[in-house]
Design a protein around this nucleic acid. Structure first.
Length: 437
DNA sequence: TCTGGGGTCCTAGGACCC
DNA sequence: TCTGGGGTCCTAGGACCC
């Protein structure tokens, strides 16, 4: 592979795994091939991944599982609770492999990444085929590849690669005549464009902008005035003018998050302040751990709680509160004290709570911590405790060590009735067929 | 009966300052 | 009693993404 000249304009390839969670399950259970399979969200609530066969049954993304349950009987639908340990590990392997195909890679989500193919001395489409073949052979994961002069075009190309079998899983706009490009764009709904969601799609339809082609040739000044710079940028990108750069590990400096959220729905509704506090404590601990992982401190803590907003027959209540952390910190004990103050302020008795969460805001590198003359940090001398806690939890599994208030086996814990084993990360759960080799 | 859990960016408006 | 223009910072909320 020849090194790219740094001046060459980028050629973006977007590679993503098809039906990623389902594909991960299939790697370790080939019986699932050609069958309708879905993977569920936390608490086995929503459907978050579907095999092609499940899509063909009319199951929609994000659909509540109970509405599709009848398909188990009638069509042999197979379902799994999500196993994020497995998906996370498979993702890491896939990203490492894909990263070897180009000098620059941006990992965009758990199942997709951008590569810059500028400087690759090979036809882009056949290179894309090579990427697909190897990912399939080495990891068992099916992928699609979209290629274009901008990220937005690469995304759209990926859509075509996935939806139209005649392209064999790889689509490259640059291999297209301009007339063909417009012809294809005229067939794709504007809502498929990266950055155009449900709301925007509706508003655009009112303006008679219904296809990708319509948006590509829409008057930019009007769009900017009505919808802002984001959509204006999208139009430029559709026209081949790159506005978004590839953000690899170097350019982003292993970007630190600007906010950290930990929240979950409860397996069953809870009413007591004590239970709610315990939940908030455990979420705070999780968030603080993430905070320390990126070596940051935070200055504000948000706590929020809500009842089941889907329920029509019960009183609704939702509230949140933002509290300052007097001395910015990443110490679980300090942040917990703040979070507990918050939950006590917004808690109202007499409601059935379904969800709670904690958001850490005002994140800064821990090195920037400022002393406070009036208030010495009482935990400063014992910050090693956090270090030891993180270390043990990493080595022996989450919650090996936690604060006493979080509870050991709380009844509100998340439910996951059909979680598969951690085939790739736990010695005692390795798939038998692999273990015997 | 049963409806996820993260994140990002942009904009508008208010508070405050000079 | 009258009463300007411009800037910054912060927050809330809306839109999007996977």
């Amino acid at each position: 592979m020849s090194p790219p000249s740094s001046s060459a304009p980028p050629i973006f390839a977007l590679i993503d795994a098809n039906n990623f969670y389902v594909s991960c399950e299939r790697v370790f259970n080939p019986q699932l091939e050609k069958k309708p399979v879905v993977v569920l969200s936390n608490n086995d609530g929503c459907i978050v991944a579907r095999s092609q066969e499940a899509k063909d049954l009319g199951i929609r993304m994000g659909e509540p599982f109970f509405r599709a349950k009848h398909l188990i009987q009638s069509h042999g639908l197979i379902w799994f609770s999500s196993n994020y340990t497995l998906y996370g590990d498979m993702s890491a392997r896939m990203m490492a492999l894909l990263g070897s195909f180009a000098p620059q890679q941006e990992i965009y989500s758990i199942d997709e990444c951008f590569l810059d193919l500028a400087g690759i001395q090979q036809d882009a489409v056949s290179y894309g085929q090579t990427i697909r073949r190897r990912t399939r052979r080495y990891l068992g994961l099916p992928t699609s590849v979209g290629i274009g002069k901008t990220k937005t075009l690469a995304k759209l190309a990926n859509y075509l690669a996935k939806k139209r079998p005649q392209y064999g899983g790889v689509f490259d706009w640059q291999a297209c005549e301009p007339l063909i490009e417009d012809y294809l764009m005229a067939q794709i709904d504007v809502g498929e464009i990266w950055g155009v969601g449900r709301r925007l799609r509706m508003q655009l339809r009112v303006m008679a902008i219904t296809t990708c082609r319509d948006l590509k040739y829409a008057p930019t000044s009007l769009i900017r005035q009505r919808f802002g710079v984001v959509l204006e940028r999208t139009i430029a990108e559709l026209n081949g003018l790159a506005c978004l750069a590839l953000e690899d590990a170097q350019t982003s400096g292993e970007k630190r998050k600007q906010q950290i959220i930990s929240s979950k729905s409860f397996g069953r509704p809870i009413t007591a302040l004590a239970d709610l506090s315990a939940a908030v404590l455990s979420y705070t601990a999780r968030a603080a751990e993430k905070l320390r992982q990126q070596d940051s401190i935070c200055s504000h803590v948000v706590v929020f709680i809500q009842t089941n907003s889907f329920s029509t027959h019960q009183k609704q209540y939702a509230n949140s509160i933002t509290l300052p952390v007097i001395v910015a910190s990443n110490d679980t004990r300090r942040l917990s004290a703040v979070a507990i103050m918050g939950i006590e302020k917004i808690y109202r008795a007499g409601y059935s709570y379904k969800k709670a969460g904690v958001i850490l805001l005002g994140l800064h590198p821990a090195a920037q911590q400022q002393g406070n003359l009036l208030m010495a940090d009482p935990y400063a001398r014992t910050s090693k405790v956090m270090h030891i806690m993180d270390h043990l939890n990493q080595k022996y599994g989450a919650n090996t060590l936690s604060l006493a208030g979080a509870g050991l086996q709380p009844h509100w814990r998340t439910q996951a009735a059909q979680r598969t084993p951690n085939y790739t990360t736990a010695w005692d759960e390795i798939a038998p067929a692999y273990a015997n080799r």
